[in-house]
């Protein structure tokens, strides 16, 4: 059963070429929802802004190359200008010196925009629980999808981007400003507030010898 069968009158007036819906007297229009059409267009032409700072970027390049071929999902055009980008892929660790740059790139991207935090370092600081490293880019910019891994495989990144597509599919234009409104007063400021940052990054991180390096007594030397 082809598409023409679903259209009013389309299935009954097949021409000789088999393209009944384009035949004489058949309707040449589709009815659909504006949400569906707009979301269909958005999710199948996501242009990534690659913000690759470390080994995750190598996997991101592999995901874009022919073996995994991100272009199958409409993301073949890596946009190296934030002005023409839809989704920010932060791949790799972000030091504090780079934090204002990441924030500015996010501010420069036009709405609608989404953000993928790729890998352990971008998502939580990873093993770099040190003085110089941002403990998760979600303290700087809003993140839609976290891709775990160190680094994630290209399939992981593709799955994360497909989750973005799924998120777009469920958005509604009627709630555009609810989803997409930005407060100009918050440009270039941290996304998370102070309590959130402390809660997210608290000093119970993942560096294995923090107590020893800080000189706190452990079971071994306090007895």
């Amino acid at each position: 059963m082809g598409l023409g069968d679903l259209l009013p009158g389309g299935g009954t007036q097949k021409s000789e070429g088999g393209l009944g819906m384009f035949g004489a007297g058949s309707p040449t229009f589709l009815t659909t929802k504006i949400d569906f059409v707009i979301n269909w267009g958005r999710r199948n032409s996501l242009w990534p802004m690659p913000f690759g700072t470390a080994c995750c970027a190598i996997e991101m390049m592999a995901a874009a190359a022919s073996n995994f071929d991100l272009a199958r999902f409409g993301m073949e055009r890596m946009s190296f200008s934030p002005r023409q980008a839809d989704v920010l892929i932060c791949a790799g660790r972000v030091p504090y010196k780079l934090a204002p740059v990441l924030r500015r790139i996010w501010d420069q991207m036009p709405q609608p925009k989404w953000c993928v935090s790729m890998g352990a370092c971008a998502s939580s600081g990873g093993v770099f629980d040190v003085y110089s490293m941002v403990q998760g880019i979600d303290t700087i910019v809003p993140v839609d999808v976290y891709v775990p891994g160190c680094p994630p495989r290209p399939e992981g990144l593709i799955y994360g981007l497909m989750m973005i597509q799924e998120k777009i599919r469920e958005e509604s234009l009627s709630r555009h400003f609810e989803h997409r409104a930005e407060d100009p007063a918050l440009v270039a400021l941290a996304k998370a507030n102070e309590a959130e940052i402390v809660g997210l990054t608290g000093p119970f991180g993942n560096s294995t010898q923090q107590e020893k390096l800080s000189g706190a007594p452990t079971d071994d030397n306090s007895a």
Partner: peptide
């Protein structure tokens, strides 16, 4: 100290104020 002398919130604030 391994994680610096300021809190993470203060470090983030100072970083974005650069």
């Amino acid at each position: 100290p391994l994680r610096g002398r300021f809190s993470r919130a203060e470090q983030t604030r100072r970083a974005l104020a650069q």
